[in-house]
Structures are given as structure tokens and as C-alpha cells.
């Protein structure tokens, strides 16, 4: 089974020194080591943005898709071969902006895919514009007079969409994030981990220090992860105190559980050399 080194590519990431993305990549690799994931049976799918480069720097199969589109690609990979370990990564602009529609439908669909969102509350790769999770009043290149809109609340949205695993991590606490990713992978169903991931170049507000002073761990505060109402309350806690950890978890059937087409074997293993359509032809005669 893989060692951390085996999962590490020869090429080094091109992320800014100190970027939260490094912590996420490290945590993902550590989690894969911990669960004994076979690299060839693991697919990391990404969209576009700084997060989008992640598959390039982990030795597994990878699919770097278009902006906001990691989830439809990832879900189809899982449905085509449900023996694979499929992890989608995205960003706040990528997943909660242009890809928002896919995000909501992926949660209600509950395909067994894990979704790790690099949430830095800013557009990094396009050099610093407001993102869907930027705070109201935030001044950026595209909002020099301050952002007018309210931020998206991905945790509350996930709860409202009956996401079966809703968590928030912090790129500055890798051991905690490793635990969350391991839990998410072991959970049977769609899992969201929104990761607070400071952008050290463009986000002057939501810095590592900003989060260090505010975050606390839900599991240390006696939080009941089966209680949706309390999870909702926690989802709206943002300001002096910011909770991280598992908000809510629920066992429900995955999308693939409901498909008789793949109850015996994955789609990919089914022979297609000589599909007999004589019965269909007869139907039209």
C-alpha cells in the first residue's frame, strides 16, 4: 500500500509559499496512506483555479476538468466504476460560483464521491477578485467599493440539501483535516469538506491568524453530529467563533445502491463486444 512518498510527485506544486493548498494536499495524501488507498484505484478530479492543479501533484489517476465541473466528471467516474475511490477537489469560486448547480444536485444525488473545497474566500488564480464566500464589504480588485452581496454559506446549503456528510476543515490544522478526510472516505455517500484555506497573496482579511484566533473543534464541544437542527445552528456560527469538524452525518442509500444495472458488477466490467439487440429490432417490426 502507498507510502506518503509514493503519492508525492517529482514535480513540486507551484502554489505560493505558505498557501493553504499545501496543507490540503498533505492532508489528502496522509489520509490516503491511512486508509490504504491503492493509487491506481484512486481518481482525483478537479475543476479550475489554484485548487484545480492539485491532481497534478499527487500520484494517483487524475482528471483536471473545466471550471466548476469537477463534480459531474467525478460522479460519472464513480458510477462507471464504483470500485474506484473518487475524490473531487474544488475551490469556492469553482464549486460555489460557476459550479454551484452541480454542487447542490450532487448532494441530493448522493453518489459516493468525496468533495474537498479549497475555500479561500477569494479568486486566487485570476489575481484577487471577490468570490461567492467573500465577506460582505470585502474590498477586492473587482469590488473596490466593497462587496455588496452576502456570502454563500456552504455548510447551511449542504444541510438544506440533505448532504449525507457535512464537515469543515482548516488548512492550518493538517492532523485534524486528515481525520476529517479519513472519516469522509469511510462514510458511504457524498461527503462535503469545506476547507478554510487562507490565500496568503490576495486575501488580507481571512488569514491564518484570523482563523487561529477563532476556530474551535465541534468534536471537543460535545456536538451531536446526528442532530440536523443543531448542525444548522452551528452552520450560522461565524465571527468571533468559527466551528470546524463534522457538522452532520446521516446514513442513506447512495445513488449507485439504487441501480440494478451495477448491482452485480461495475459498468466497466460488463462486456460490450456483442450486445444482442435482436429483441429490440423485433419490437419495431
Amino acid at each position: 500500500m502507498p507510502s506518503f512518498e509514493e503519492l508525492t510527485t517529482k514535480e513540486r506544486p507551484t502554489w505560493c509559499p505558505g498557501c493553504g493548498d499545501w496543507g490540503i494536499l498533505t492532508a489528502l495524501k496522509k489520509a490516503l496512506v491511512e486508509i490504504n488507498a491503492e493509487p491506481t484505484k484512486t481518481v482525483v478530479v478537479a475543476g479550475i483555479g489554484c485548487s484545480g492543479h492539485l491532481p497534478q501533484w499527487i500520484n494517483t489517476f487524475g482528471f483536471h476538468s473545466l471550471h466548476g465541473r469537477a463534480l459531474p466528471v467525478a460522479q460519472a467516474i464513480k458510477l462507471s466504476n464504483h470500485e474506484l475511490n473518487v475524490i473531487a477537489v474544488g475551490g469556492d469560486g469553482d464549486g460555489y460560483g460557476i459550479g454551484m448547480g452541480h454542487f447542490i444536485h450532487a448532494m441530493r444525488r448522493n453518489v459516493n464521491v468525496k468533495y474537498i473545497v479549497h475555500d479561500n474566500q477569494i479568486y486566487g488564480l485570476t489575481t484577487g477578485q471577490a468570490s461567492p464566500t467573500s465577506e460582505k464589504g470585502f474590498k477586492t480588485k473587482s469590488t473596490p467599493h466593497g462587496l455588496i452581496e452576502e456570502p454563500v454559506n456552504p455548510i447551511a446549503l449542504a444541510l438544506a440539501t440533505d448532504c449525507s456528510f457535512v464537515a469543515r476543515g482548516f488548512a492550518g490544522d493538517v492532523p485534524h483535516l486528515v481525520k476529517l478526510i479519513v472519516q469522509a472516505i469511510n462514510h458511504k455517500g457524498f461527503a462535503l469538506i469545506d476547507v478554510l484555506q487562507p490565500c496568503v497573496t490576495f486575501n488580507y482579511l481571512n488569514t491564518f491568524e484570523y482563523f487561529y484566533r477563532r476556530i474551535y473543534k465541534l468534536e471537543e464541544s460535545g456536538h451531536d453530529t446526528s442532530n440536523k437542527e443543531i448542525a444548522f445552528q452551528k452552520a450560522f456560527e461565524w465571527g468571533e467563533k468559527i466551528p470546524i469538524g463534522l457538522f452532520y452525518k446521516k446514513e442513506r442509500k447512495t445513488y449507485e445502491d439504487e441501480l440494478p444495472q451495477i448491482s452485480k458488477e461495475p459498468l466497466i466490467k460488463q462486456k460490450i463486444d456483442n450486445v444482442d439487440i435482436s429483441q429490440l429490432i423485433e419490437e419495431f417490426c
Partner: peptide, 13 residues
């Protein structure tokens, strides 16, 4: 958009 990306994902798999 999801339809074509899913078709691409399945084909990749």
C-alpha cells in the same frame, strides 16, 4: 453542462 461532463467522466473511466 453536467450531461456532457458526465459523458466525458464515464468515458475517461
Amino acid at each position: 453542462i453536467a450531461a456532457i461532463h458526465m459523458a466525458i467522466g464515464a468515458s475517461f473511466a
